[in-house]
């Protein structure tokens, strides 16, 4: 990292600090959520500066779209302003300051930013990069590590998403059940249909967002992206649709049952690939045995599990959105 990009990143981080302070200070939750949006953008930009394109993409898909929508959905049903003042700010500040000092204290022995001799760079990284080239043969090392070398973690991640979906559905009920089955589509409470410009533009853009989602899905092996980001983008497009046309119409496009099937199907696809490795004589999640050529097998495996991730994430995020939105309607 050249000094100048380092300076950029320092600048961004300074902005980030200001933003977070403002987030904590403001008593208006709506403002806080908006500032969160800014913070997310800043973080994503910093990630990008720090060579983490995949992570920046994820932060983009999550922070800019999903997260704001969810927070606003919750705010709409609760209240915008914090009512009571902070309790015991001095005590809390004291604790916080002490921990901060401890963390800063720790920094002085750390390997400086970007040092090639740092253990992180020296220990595992070369192996990953070499092996990706040799054993998996896809350009995106992050995807290789994510989906194959540490595919088990990623399975866990999918399970976390799935759990969140199950949890939200458990807590809030499914969108379908809340918006009383069989009730006619009420035209006057259906999203932003009366706002011409957003509606038409949205209509224009949704196909492209969807396509972009699929693109990110299938190019995860070549460029930043992958199942999770793709799932989030696809979900964002559906969320956009239901913001524009009303939640009930969105449920007509992808019914609740399909969403549930997606949640489940993705996880099962992932699991099935893992079990297939086991059945074909390898270990769990060993993709090499999927094809006569182990490298090909790895690629197939990665492709399949990324699809699994994408399906689950999209299903879960859309379900969560509907669950939130239907609470508002009820």
């Amino acid at each position: 990292m050249s000094t100048i990009t380092l300076l950029f990143s320092i600048f961004l981080l300074t902005l980030l600090m200001i933003t977070t302070m403002a987030i904590v200070r403001t008593r208006n939750l709506f403002v806080a959520v908006m500032l969160m949006g800014i913070a997310s953008l800043l973080i994503a930009a910093s990630f990008f500066l720090l060579d983490a394109a995949d992570v920046a993409l994820t932060e983009a898909a999550v922070g800019a779209g999903i997260s704001t929508v969810l927070f606003l959905g919750a705010l709409a049903l609760t209240s915008e302003r914090e009512r009571s003042p902070s309790s015991l700010p001095l005590l809390s500040l004291g604790i916080v300051a002490i921990v901060a000092l401890i963390v800063i204290y720790a920094t002085f022995d750390q390997p400086p930013l970007g040092s090639p001799s740092a253990p992180v760079q020296a220990h595992l990284t070369p192996w990953y990069i070499e092996s990706t080239r040799e054993l998996i043969d896809i350009p995106n090392v992050v995807t290789a590590v994510l989906a194959s070398f540490r595919g088990y973690d990623t399975l866990g991640e999918v399970i976390v998403v799935f759990t969140a979906g199950v949890g939200v559905l458990f807590l809030l009920g499914t969108g379908a059940s809340a918006s009383a089955a069989g009730a006619p589509l009420s035209e006057d409470n259906a999203g932003l249909r009366h706002y011409l410009i957003p509606r038409i533009l949205g209509r224009l853009l949704i196909p492209f967002i969807l396509l972009l989602g699929f693109y990110v899905q299938f190019h995860g092996e070549y460029s930043p992206g992958g199942g999770f980001q793709a799932g989030a983008i696809v979900a964002a497009s559906i969320i956009l649709y239901s913001l524009l046309e009303g939640e009930q119409r969105a449920l007509l496009v992808i019914p609740q049952g399909v969403l549930l099937a997606m949640m489940v199907g993705g996880v099962l696809l992932y699991g099935a690939v893992g079990v297939a490795g086991l059945v074909l004589g390898g270990n769990f999640l060993d993709y090499s045995v999927l094809d006569s050529d182990p490298v090909k097998g790895q690629q197939w495996g990665i492709l399949l599990i990324e699809i699994g991730i994408g399906i689950t994430v999209a299903g879960v995020l859309i379900s969560i959105f509907h669950a939130f939105a239907s609470r508002g309607a009820a």
Partner: peptide, 23 residues
């Protein structure tokens, strides 16, 4: 070929979805 296939699939899926959306 694989990516082209995926592309075809994606485009078809997108069109299908958009159709379902009534656009």
């Amino acid at each position: 070929p694989l990516l082209l296939l995926m592309g075809a699939l994606s485009c078809a899926l997108t069109v299908y979805m958009v159709r379902r959306m009534g656009y």
